[in-house]
Simulated scan of single mutants.
Amino acid sequence: MSHKFTCNAVLFDLDGVLIDSTPNILRHWKTWADEHGMDIREIERVAHGLRTVETMRLVAPHLDAEQEARLFAEHELKDLTGITAVEGARELITSFNGMKWAVVTSGCRKLVHLRMGQAGLPVPEYLVTADDVISGKPSPEPYLKGAQLLGVKPQNCLVVEDAPAGIEAGTKAGMRVVAVASTHTRAMLAETQADGIVDRLADIRISPTGDGQILVTCG
């Protein structure tokens, strides 16, 4: 069953939506967990969609999260092993052809540029990163910032996400959300407030409506 949405702009999460970075990210979290005598499963349970510093505040409140996050980022910047574009990402991005889109991610700006370059994807003109907000997902701040950059009202934006924290951020921002079942199962995503769920990013297609809007077909 397909869903169709009309909007003025599409806001994409990055990791798990446009690029596949999960093995790389989990490898770094496993190293960090081992160094601090922590259970990687506890980190995996909460980390998807959150900024590194916010994950660390949740799982290790006894540590200096800001300092730990800076060190973590230094290691990530040196390791792009296994970073690839998700199937259909390049085709979907290039199909915008002047229509409005942005990336809203929990990663830092420098890392976003490196990962998108490694994956062979163009860095968008409009980009919101962990460096640009006070509160990361599931706060609506990142997506509201994206809408502001694009000059589009939140209710006229469509979000494409893979993580419950990001879906919550989009819905709190007053946007409709399409969830991609890449890092979470359809059953898990069905428990969120996503307006639609697709199995793959390649199941999403866009086209102009002729009146300045974007028609997004899912499924």
Rank of each mutant, 00 (worst) to 15 (best):
H3M: 00
H3V: 00
K4D: 10
N8M: 13
A9Y: 03
L11Y: 05
D13R: 05
D15V: 09
L18C: 10
I19C: 06
S21R: 02
S21Y: 00
T22W: 13
G37A: 07
G37V: 07
M38K: 14
G49K: 01
L50Y: 13
V53Q: 12
V53A: 12
M56Y: 01
R57P: 06
L58N: 09
V59F: 09
E66Q: 14
R70Y: 01
H75Y: 03
D79V: 08
I83V: 15
A85Y: 02
F96M: 10
V103N: 11
V104E: 04
C108K: 12
C108N: 09
K110D: 15
L111V: 06
L114H: 06
D131R: 07
S135T: 08
K137F: 11
P138W: 04
A147Q: 04
G151H: 05
G151Q: 06
Q155W: 12
E161K: 00
A169H: 07
A169N: 08
M175G: 02
R176D: 01
V177H: 01
V178G: 06
S182V: 02
R186E: 13
A194L: 07
A194K: 06
I197D: 00
R200D: 12
I206T: 10
D211N: 10
D211R: 14
L215M: 14
T217D: 13
G219N: 09
